[in-house]
Amino acid sequence: MSKTSLEQTQRRVRTAARALARGGLVHAYGHCSARLDRDSFVVCAARPMGTIAIGEDGTVVPVNGALPEGVLGEVRIHQQIYARRPQVGAVCRIMPPQTGLLALLRRTPRPRHGFGAYFAPGPALWDDPRLLRDDAAAARLAETLGGGNALVMRANGAVVVGASLIEAVALSWFLEEAARVEVGLMQMGQDGDHTLLSADETTARQVVAGRVYERMWEYLTDGDPEAESV
């Protein structure tokens, strides 16, 4: 790993952290990371993500092994996901409000519009409100996520993964928008199967061409001094 590669990853991690805060997807709590290589990743500084300063580096964490001093205990979730899924390049641990509201009912968004289609048939549910502060629990969560791109935690936010931070951040916003639609339909009493996309419609809306993820990244990072063109 080159010094340039590490510096670029650090910059993108802190840009992503501020983007998630700007999008209302985290508050005092939450964290994000990006893979450096097979054996390590960078996690953002352990403080409110919107307050991470320009040039403030995160911590390099091993995929296997003890967490470095000062790293949040739930970063074990990142370790367990990276260890199981070599294609995952980024993890976002977020606190989206509408998604969290649904989770209290043990529900996750279903594919009812374009953004919801990306999680079809729906994000996994982790039905345990406790913080994940040990390796065994983090491993079970990673197993529950399986090959999906999002997992909703009852009374405890959500985890979203992607091949890159650009994808993971965009999918984080998509998840909360899908939850907003789900909650709105529930309020109208229209959350039955009649408002679901069909299988063909769902597949047709799972589009990534046309810079779908990149445009959301640009929207959420607009005005950030460290945001680069993608």
Rank of each mutant, 00 (worst) to 15 (best):
G24L: 10
C32R: 00
L175S: 02
Y118I: 06
E226G: 03
A142S: 14
D128H: 08
H78V: 08
A45H: 14
L220M: 14
D222H: 14
D222N: 13
T51E: 12
D224K: 05
V61S: 04
P225S: 10
A178Y: 02
G157Y: 04
H31I: 03
Y118H: 15
Q80V: 02
G162I: 07
M216D: 01
R215A: 15
A178D: 01
M188I: 05
Q87S: 14
E218G: 06
D135Y: 04
R93Q: 15
W126T: 01
V161A: 09
K3P: 06
D191Q: 07
A142M: 10
V60W: 09
P121R: 10
L220F: 09
E228D: 12
V230L: 12
E201W: 04
G157M: 04
H27R: 14
E167K: 05
D191H: 07
T4K: 14
A17W: 00
M49K: 04
T108G: 01
D222V: 13
A19K: 03
V230N: 09
L220A: 07
R11F: 03
A199C: 05
A204R: 15
L185P: 09
E214I: 06
A46N: 11
A142R: 00
A179P: 02
E176L: 08
L132I: 15
L131S: 14
T221Y: 07
M153N: 04
R18P: 03
R107T: 02
G114H: 12
V181D: 00
V212A: 14
C32Q: 00
A17G: 15
T203G: 10
D200E: 15
L102F: 04
R112N: 03
L141N: 01
Y82C: 06
T108H: 00
E214P: 03
R106Q: 08
V152A: 05
V91Q: 03
V161C: 08
R107N: 02
G146Q: 12
A142C: 13
I166P: 00
G210C: 13
A34L: 12
F174C: 12
E74R: 04
A139S: 13
F115C: 04
R106E: 08
M188C: 15
A155P: 05
G114C: 12
H113P: 00
F119C: 05
P129Y: 06
H194G: 06
V60H: 03
G189I: 08
G122T: 08
R93V: 02
G89Q: 06
G162Y: 07
L101F: 11
A45W: 01
L197M: 13
A120E: 05
F41S: 07
G55Q: 11
Q10V: 09
L72T: 11
A150C: 07
I166K: 02
A142G: 12
A199Q: 10
Y213I: 02
D39T: 15
E143P: 00
S5G: 11
R110S: 06
G100E: 11
V42A: 02
A204Q: 09
V60N: 03
D39P: 08
P111H: 02
G50S: 13
F115S: 00
M188K: 14
D39F: 10
A16C: 09
R35H: 08
M153I: 15
V207S: 13
E7G: 05
Q87A: 15
P121K: 06
A178P: 02
V43Q: 01
A139P: 01
P48D: 05
G184W: 05
G184T: 10
